[in-house]
């Protein structure tokens, strides 16, 4: 970021202090720091992860955006790049990893699978999109998205961060500083704890269909 971009217009800076002093808002500095060092979690699920690695590697080089530091531990990561098909067997682990990430945290759904199930949506072990469980910030279409598309999506995430304000971001508000998603569990099929009453009602209805449905 150049001094020009950082300076907030409206304040006159004396000529002799130009290029030495910048007047800006706290938000801008705060966001500049965050958007330029988004550390992704080292986390690949399927084919899309290979394109993610390709984006990290020689030709596309995510280091240009400060995103080259892949953290294997969720505690040190800012962004979860869900790169690949989310399966029912894997989703409890993914949600748990998300819960372990400290705020501020972002989720990027890379590829058709993570966004909505993709080519495998109808599969019996496939979750049709990670947004059924986690709040997704950016969706990147493609199967797999090319590294260019991934980079574009990540720039979109940076733009989103630029628009946030320290006054309103949820992790500086009162209350719990991190949003946790209840961890789904594996029963006869995948059970989302938030939907237990719904499942119960529906299953009861299937067992005793209402009278009008019977005839």
């Amino acid at each position: 970021m150049t001094a020009n971009e950082l300076n907030t217009p409206g304040y006159e800076i004396p000529d002799d202090l130009k290029d030495v002093v910048a007047i800006t808002t706290l938000d801008k500095v705060y966001n500049f720091g965050r958007r330029s060092s988004i550390w992704p979690m080292m986390f690949g699920l399927a084919c899309c992860a290979i394109e993610m690695i390709a984006a990290q590697a020689s030709r596309y080089d995510l280091a240009r955006f400060g995103m080259e530091v892949m953290r294997p531990s969720p505690r040190q990561a800012d962004m979860m790049l869900v790169a690949g098909t989310v399966t029912k067997k894997m989703v409890p682990a993914i949600v748990r990893l998300y819960n372990q990430m400290p705020e501020p945290k972002y989720v990027v759904a890379m590829g058709a699978c993570a966004s909505g199930g993709g080519p495998f949506k109808e599969g019996y072990n496939v979750v049709a999109g990670i947004d059924k469980f986690l709040p997704v910030d950016v969706y990147i279409p493609g199967c797999p998205p090319t590294p260019q598309a991934l980079v574009y999506g990540l720039i979109k995430l940076q733009e989103k961060i630029d628009k946030q304000s320290i006054k309103t971001v949820r992790w500086y508000q009162k209350g719990a500083d991190s949003v946790e998603t209840p961890i789904p569990f594996l029963g006869p099929d995948l059970i989302d704890p938030r939907r237990i009453p719904e499942i119960k009602a529906k299953a009861a209805e299937l067992a005793n269909p209402p009278a009008e449905a019977a005839n």
Partner: peptide, 21 residues
């Protein structure tokens, strides 16, 4: 959407009368 067509609104199926609690 496939989700609107299925009883449980998602890619899951349970036996009639199943009680998760």
């Amino acid at each position: 959407l496939a989700e609107t067509r299925v009883p449980f609104g998602d890619n899951v199926s349970f036996k009639p009368g199943f009680d998760p609690e």
